[in-house]
Each structure stands twice: as C-alpha cells, then as structure tokens.
C-alpha cells in the first residue's frame, strides 16, 4: 500500500514537472525585457535628447545652482575609499555607482534635480544616463567632477550623512529597474575607460570592431575624426541600431569631443546588451592633445 502510494505520487510529480518547467518558460518568453522594455525606453530617451540636452553641468553653473536651490540633490557615485580620501560635498548622497540601481529608494522623486558627481565626470555620466533611462529626467552630470570642484577649493565635509531609504518611485517599471541595476552592478573593472595613448597602441594590432564617433556632423568635419571611425550622432543612435554589430561581444570603442556624449552612448550600448564597450577618455580633444592623428574629409 505504502509503496504503491509513493509510486503514484512520484508518477504524478513526473507528469507535472515538465508542465511546470514549460509554464515558466512561457512566462519568460512573454516578456522579452530587452525588446519590449529596454529598447523602447532607449528610443524614447534618445528621441528626447535634442530638446532635453545631454545633462552636462559646468562647475560654475553647479555652484550657482547649489546657492539658489536648496532642493538640488548631489549624488556622489565614487567608491567608499575615494570619498574617505577627499571628503564629500555637504548634504550629498553617497551611492557607489555599481550599487546605484539597488539604492534608488535613497533618491527623491523622478522630477528632482539630481547632479551626479564622480572624480572626473566619466562614471557620473554613466550614472546620469542610467538615471535618465529610468525616468529621472532632470539628472545631470558635473563636468570635471570632484577634481574640478576640489581644484577650486570648494568646501567638503568628511562624510556623507546617513539617509533613510524611502520607496522606489512607483512609475519605474520593476523589470526596467532590475535590468538597469544589473547592468550597473556588472560595470567592468576600470569602468570602460580607454586612454588615447592605449587606444592608439591597440589600433596598431587590431582595430576595434566598431570605433563609433557620436559627435555632430559639424564636429566630424572639423576638427576631423579618427581613422576607421563610423559616424552616428549620439542623438540618432536608436534610429541607426542596424549599423551596430550583430555580435554582442564585439569590441566597441565610442568617442565624442570630451567624453560626456561618449559616456551616454556607451551606457546606451551596454543597456542594449553589448558587453565589450569602452569610451575614449577625454574624447577626441584628449586624442588631439596627445598629438595623435586625425583625418579630415576634403
């Protein structure tokens, strides 16, 4: 009796199990996060770029903003050790970039003005772009980061204040958030920076699969471009996704004039699933400053 009961139970399980597995498979097939959520959101973000601007904020304007508007949120995304070394802007939130997605509860509402800062502006651009994709339309990046801020001897305090986490804004799609958070958490060691000298050296051996220039057509014409580059203006990346490599592991290097639009483009490509994207530090300005060659169309 017992044996037969056990056997029939096992039989029932064996029959049901594939059903469960299949049922779960169909659920994941129903929502393709990348195609159904990420890509449309990136298209929306990209289309609004012309009117909304890129979100770069110069130090002088940042200081005026701080004096004028006590509601401005300063978000420092540097690592803990960096903040300990230099101090932090008073009343700033401190959330290291890789943990930003998990800590949105610390930020105010979607319409708040949030200025993201890091050491030079490179990482903050990635953080700002991620926030904008999530719907924080007034996210900005401090150009030159804490490096520029500290060079002017503007004041800092030793550590960030403890802030109690609130609710994540209800308007953010949980699947979008989960995806973006994972993307930030998996940012590569070195953040995807490539210096002009290193890129130039690399290019002797192997050209990137895509060297993407995201500046405007006028900038491509003058001061020129890096040999082998493909031109897609950052504002028009989404209408031109067909020009991007099929292979998500392709070696992609992005550049703009100074690095900010490159950072925006890099984050967009990473969110599309590309796993090997880097951004030229200092952009073509840094490249030219390092006396490396540029081409100009006649």
């Amino acid at each position: 009796m017992r044996k037969s009961t056990l056997l029939s139970l096992l039989l029932v399980f064996a029959l049901l199990l594939p059903g469960f597995v299949l049922a779960q498979d169909t659920t994941t097939e129903e929502v393709d996060v990348l195609a159904d959520i990420i890509m449309p959101r990136l298209e929306e973000y990209n289309a609004a770029m012309e009117e909304a601007g890129y979100g770069t904020l110069k130090l002088d304007d940042f200081m005026v903003m701080l004096a004028e508007d006590p509601e401005v949120v300063v978000l420092d995304v540097r690592e803990v050790a960096e903040v300990e070394e230099t101090g932090i802007i008073e009343n700033a939130l401190h959330i290291p970039l890789r943990t930003l997605g998990e800590n949105l509860g610390l930020l105010p509402d979607l319409d708040a003005t949030i200025v993201v800062v890091c050491k030079s502006g490179f990482r903050a651009t990635l953080g700002m772009t991620a926030l904008k994709v999530l719907g924080y339309d007034n996210a900005k990046v401090l150009v030159g980061g804490m490096g520029a801020y500290l060079a002017e001897e503007y004041p800092v305090v030793e550590m960030a204040e403890e802030v109690e986490a609130g609710e994540v804004p209800a308007d953010i799609d949980p699947l979008l958030l989960e995806y973006v958070a994972a993307n930030l958490a998996n940012l590569p060691e070195g953040w995807g920076v490539v210096t002009p000298a290193n890129l130039f050296e690399e290019m002797f051996e192997t050209m990137p699969d895509l060297l993407l220039d995201v500046r405007s057509a006028e900038e491509w014409a003058d001061p020129g471009y890096i040999e082998g580059a493909t031109h897609i203006w950052v504002n028009e990346i989404m209408p031109n996704v067909a020009e991007l490599p099929e292979d998500l592991e392709a070696n992609i290097v992005v550049y703009c004039a100074s690095g900010y639009r490159g950072g925006i483009a890099m984050t967009m490509l990473q969110l599309m699933g590309y796993t090997n994207v880097r951004n030229l530090a200092g952009g073509i300005n840094g490249w030219i400053a390092a006396e490396l060659p540029v081409l100009k169309d006649a």
Partner: peptide, 19 residues
Amino acid sequence: YYGAHEDISSDVHFRARMA
C-alpha cells in the same frame, strides 16, 4: 561673487551656497 575673474576665488558666502 561667482569668482569669474581669473585666479580670484569666489566669495566665501557663495561657496557656502548662499544666494
């Protein structure tokens, strides 16, 4: 107040976020 002249710092009150 903003420290726009080269090599001259902004006002201490500006730095203390006073409009």
